[in-house]
Design a protein around this nucleic acid. Sequence first.
DNA 1: TTCATTACAGAACAAATTGTTCACTTTCAT
DNA 2: ATGAAAGTGAACAATTTGTTCTGTAATGAA
Lengths: 187, 187
Amino acid sequence: MDRRQQKTRKSIFNAFILLLSQKNYNKITVQEIIDEANVGRSTFYEHFETKDDLLKALCEELFGHILSSAMDCTHTHGLYSNGSAPESVFCHLLQHLQENDNNILALLSCESSDIFLRYFKDSLSQLIKTQFITQNSHINKNLPEDFLINHISGSFVEMVLWWTKGQMKHTPEELDCYFRAVTEPIL
Amino acid sequence: MDRRQQKTRKSIFNAFILLLSQKNYNKITVQEIIDEANVGRSTFYEHFETKDDLLKALCEELFGHILSSAMDCTHTHGLYSNGSAPESVFCHLLQHLQENDNNILALLSCESSDIFLRYFKDSLSQLIKTQFITQNSHINKNLPEDFLINHISGSFVEMVLWWTKGQMKHTPEELDCYFRAVTEPIL
DNA sequence: TTCATTACAGAACAAATTGTTCACTTTCAT
DNA sequence: ATGAAAGTGAACAATTTGTTCTGTAATGAA
């Protein structure tokens, strides 16, 4: 990819993230994005078809990394590692979020964070689903599998939302502990 | 309130709900709303300042009823009634939703359902909070109270989302049973 | 370094949307 | 019946969107 393209793409992403931290997604105009990114109007539309397209591209870029990283972790350890805490996939995810690559925390705590958490949850559900199939520890409960998957992934993103909205006054390790406390008893 | 106002307001609400079942909130224009509602442009703006204002008014109208009804239920029975199922506030809420007053189910299963569930969750959190204060059954756990409240309300709306997205192939009683299975063990 | 390719800038453009205003008509409550 | 309140419909400026164009500058390969 041309260096110019990389630079432009990154400028637009950064401008977009900055604006998202200031106002609602719906209220952001393409004009504001290109002003902040300092790129021409036609340039924007050569990179992205619409504002929604930009949003989608941003989500894919950000959560692609995180989820694939988590996927590796899951392969070696399972969803929860048997026994002690630190290798939990969920803890791994939380730590990864706290590292704040690409300013992802700005997105998860902004006014439109729902959009990103929804995207995150969908990816997370798929991850958990594959894990459930190999694990089967839940069969003895008479709860529908897709209900359980939805509950786990949903609870996780709701926790992340609570975490970020409250200025993140907890460590990933504490959160992981809380999450285990409310999910392990039901598996 | 004048009959004309009632009629106009209801027309706009219905048109809005219909459109929400067809396309994303962001993509709906005021022009489409007034065409569908068959009211004049100036009339719309006499009732609502903006589209966002309409959304807020709709939420207040719909969830106002449901939540106040649940509030009464909570006062007499507590969050979960001691012992047997049918008086559970959550079951009551689900039954209320299934009655589909004002076509609320169309909103909870539409593309923009997040918006409504978010509003619903905020109201629900307040309800649960007051209940927790009087109940205190969770003090022995070392989980932050606001984390627990967020977890309960969050799990509930995620369940409702799962329910509606899956064409509601479950009864409120079944859902209540599932919900108890994943929340009672942690209280 | 040269040079063809590719990306960007910037302006202009039509179309759509928003929110306001105003003169007019209809409906309501008494 | 009549004044008051509500709705109509058209017109309006101001934004916003997405496209198209010409000219300029950066890139990467030979």
